[in-house]
Amino acid sequence: MDHDHYSDDYIRSILTSVKSVAIIGASAKQVRPSYFVMKYMMDKGFTVFPINPGHAGGEILGRMTYASLAELPEPVDMVDVFRASAAVPGITDEVLAMEPLPKVVWMQLTVRDDDSAKRLEAAGIDVVMNRCPKIEYGRLSGEIGWSGVNSKTISARRPEVRAGFQSFGIRNK
C-alpha cells in the first residue's frame, strides 16, 4: 500500500462501507478539530464511539465516552486516531487485541506510523494515514467546494443528496 498517495476509489470504498467509528482522542471541547470531525460524521449517519480516558463515563455530543477500545460495548468498523504519531504503536497493540478486528484504522492529518501500518495490514486491516475523514468525505461528496476548497474531483453526474438542506453524500460507484 502506498501511504503517500491514496486513490479516490480506496477512500470512497472506506467511507461508503464503514458504519461505526471509534474516535480515539475525541474531545468534549467544541472548538477542537476532533469535535468538528465527530459532529460531522454523526451528521453523515456514522455511529460514533468517543474514546477519551479523561472523559470516560461522560457524554460527548450525546454519546457515551469510553476509556479505551477494550471497553467498547460492541464491535466497530473503523478506529479513527486523533493522537500524536508516537502513540500509534500502542494503539495498534490495542486494535490488534480487539475481537472482532475493525476493518479500517484511520489516522488524522500529521499522524503516521509506517511500522504500525504494516502490522495492521498484515492482520487484514485497511489503513489510511495523515488524512482527515471529514475533509475526504467533503471532497468526495463535493461539499467541501462550498467553502471554496479544491476537491480535485470533477463530475457531470448528479451529486448524492441527503435529507435536509445542504447535505451531500458520497456516491458509491
Binding site: 468538528f36 467546494g145 462550498w146 471554496g148
Partner: peptide, 28 residues
Amino acid sequence: HAASLFGLQAFGNIYTRIMNPTQAVLEE
C-alpha cells in the same frame, strides 16, 4: 444545523456576504 454552520463545523451556506453557491464554483 445553524449552530454547526456558524461554528464552522459543517460545510454550507449561511449568508451571501460570506459565501454563495455560484461564487463557490468560481472559487474551486
